[in-house]
Write a protein that binds this DNA or RNA. Structure first.
Length: 573
RNA sequence: CGGGGCGUAGCGCAGCCUGGUAGCGCGUCCGGUUCGGGACCGGAAAGUCGUAGGUUCAAAUCCUAUCGCCCCGACCA
């Protein structure tokens, strides 16, 4: 393929609205263009990458026994009303109506649509199990799309749904998909980790996320350094504190101290000369609209999903400043457990603390030497803090958590009968009895995977694609295209590589060397061959890995063979 | 949805405070020189100043409303 004939509009300057590496380089490299917030066009190079990812996904799913289908992008409201999600899904579901006034939505996910298909046409245990998948554009009207392809509103996703006669078979398929996912992301050339995850709006009881490890990832995960346990911090378990009950004799007398305008943990601890570990912060939440107080060590974070689960409420939000003032009868920043008139839930770690600092429910006042039991009694003691690097592993006795940042590119769920039950998706078993199908579902963000690869692979100059998802395997740069010998050698190299089954881009543009090499760095094709008159006089061309600094001089006659050998070797990993 | 920022040529920006003929860099087109890591000279095309209303002799500039985009947070398969 000739560069001069492809639409690759590279940009020298960083687009004003891009902040993260993948967004900046996808736009600068001429891969994508924004059309509206969270909505992008894919240019030829961008589409090639997306197709590469999609092909790997398709091959591995087919190999795992799944069957490809294509479900509609427009879905009638009735289906969503049946599952109950027409009401539940909220403003993220983009709704519209047709000319007759009939309600529709654009599919953000397709559980309803596949269940509709399967319940009509699959009636016998003989047809089970079955796993149907599609690769298709999804739309979720995100409140805040951001970071280019990382979090768009319109994005390409592979979603698979499996149907089984019982839970055991569904769990077998869950593992089958888990293994397929591991192969997919390995083949994509990504460093990733599968972690235990929450199930969110999709529902279900068992789930793993596949996280591409990158410092810029939105998700925090912890992984034990000894056993295999790894989880999203949203639900990572914590080892119960083992310290025995504090000795009452060590309690000091509680006293009130003046802390003028010291609101934050940082301000208070600095003012009082104590550490954040010696302070317990008290937060006010509205749990199903009723105020509750939550206490946790000063340097810890409340884990809202855990808290929500522990309190068994539907809605949990941090109270507004006004609500906090009403509950504590004090300005925000001085809340404490002593004399508080609402239910008080404390983190388990609070039980191990003695003589700590809390707010006094009075402006500019804190208490020191507060002790649980003596000064206040909690409604309940719960595990409500977010796990962090350095915590002891909950699953094994020796391990400690390491912290990572990840980009969630895939997730597998065990759904059970969450959808088959309300939508009546059943089959006849061998005994002739009607039973509900047991389901699983499995998603991969195809466009997000492409972006994640860039977050994991780039430098200051541009993208460094893994071979498997690069738009081309090799870029041949003709340094002086007007020099007949150079042009001819470059063209021959291109033709030989292409004949060898290598995807090769020939930069035949009449541009200065600097422009071409900078563009090559920017678009990030893994293997580059520079053909220039200087080295050509010595019968050589220059081969360079995008990821490496050094340039190798090889004989012109050997160049095609060498590159053609390296590409499959690199694809194998 | 709360907080903040920005909308001026394809891209990046200045001009706005203090109203008076719309500018710079990059890119694009033409001619020439040059050309192994983002060249140089000469010429050219290209802008409803986001939109609507208002104030004014006069609005990119002041006022009001509105739309869009980005960031932080909330939220989030």
């Amino acid at each position: 393929m000739r560069y001069s004939q492809l639409l690759i509009p590279t940009l020298k300057e960083v687009p004003a609205d891009a902040q993260v590496a993948s967004h900046i380089f996808l736009v600068r490299g001429g891969y994508i263009r924004q059309v509206a917030a969270g909505i992008y066009s894919f240019l030829p190079m961008g589409l090639r990458v997306v197709n590469k990812v999609a092909s790997i996904v398709r091959e591995e799913l087919n190999r795992a026994g799944a069957q490809e289908v294509l479900l509609p992008i427009s879905l009638p409201a009735e289906l969503w009303q049946e599952s109950g999600r027409w009401q539940k899904y909220g403003p993220e579901l983009l709704r519209f109506h047709d000319r007759k006034g009939k309600d529709f939505c654009i599919g953000p996910t397709h559980e309803e649509a596949v269940v509709e298909l399967v319940r009509r046409d699959v009636r016998s245990y003989r047809a089970l199990p079955i796993n149907l998948y599609q690769i298709q554009t999804k739309f979720r009207d995100e409140a805040r799309p951001r970071a280019g392809l990382m979090r768009g509103r319109e994005f390409m996703m592979k979603d698979a749904y499996s149907f089984h006669v019982d839970e055991a078979d569904a769990m077998r398929e869950y593992q089958n998909m888990y293994d397929a996912y591991a192969r997919i992301f390995t083949r994509c050339g990504l460093k990733f980790r599968a972690v235990e995850a929450g199930t969110g709006a999709i529902g279900g009881s068992h789930s793993h996320e596949f996280q591409v490890l990158a410092a810029s990832g939105e998700d925090a995960i912890v992984a034990c350094d000894r056993c295999g346990y790894a989880a999203n911090v949203e639900l990572a378990e914590l080892r119960p504190a083992t310290a025995e009950a504090p000795d009452l004799a060590t309690f000091h007398a509680r006293s009130k101290v003046h802390t003028p305008a010291k609101h934050t943990v940082e301000e208070v601890t600095e003012f009082l000369g104590v550490t954040a570990q010696q302070l317990a912060k008290t937060l006010v939440y509205l749990a199903d609209a009723k105020p509750v107080a939550v206490m946790i060590r000063g340097d810890r974070d409340v884990n809202e999903p855990k808290l929500k689960a522990a309190l068994e409420v539907e809605e949990l939000v941090l109270a507004s400043d006004k609500a906090v003032e009403e509950v504590t009868k004090a300005p925000v920043g001085f809340a404490g457990p002593v004399g508080l008139g609402v239910p008080l839930f404390v983190d388990r770690e609070i039980e191990t603390m003695v003589n700590f600092v809390t707010g006094a429910n009075e402006g500019d006042q804190h208490f020191v030497n507060v002790n649980l039991g003596r000064d206040f009694r909690p409604t309940a003691v719960l595990d409500i803090r977010t796990a962090a690097a350095g915590d002891r592993c909950a699953r094994c006795d020796e391990g400690t958590y390491q912290g990572y940042r990840g980009i969630e590119v895939g997730q597998v769920f065990y759904l059970g009968t969450k959808y088959s039950q309300p939508m009546g998706c059943s089959f006849l078993d061998e005994a002739g009895a009607t039973k509900l199908m047991v389901m699983g579902c499995y998603g991969i963000g195809v466009t997000r995977t492409a972006a994640a690869a860039i977050e994991q692979g780039h430098d200051d100059a541009g993208i460094i694609w893994p071979m498997a998802i690069a738009p081309f395997h090799v870029e041949v740069v003709s340094l002086q295209p007007r020099d007949a010998a150079v042009a001819e050698a470059a063209q021959r190299l291109h033709d030989e590589l292409q004949a060898a089954g290598v995807e090769v881009l020939l930069d035949d543009r009449d541009e200065r060397v600097g422009v071409k090499l900078n563009d090559a760095d920017l678009i990030g094709i893994p293997l580059r061959v520079a053909v220039g008159k200087r080295s050509l006089q010595a019968g050589e061309v220059e081969v360079k890995w995008r990821r490496a600094a050094e340039v190798e001089k090889v004989k012109v006659a050997d160049a095609a063979r060498i590159c053609a050998e390296r590409v499959p070797a690199e694809l194998r990993g």
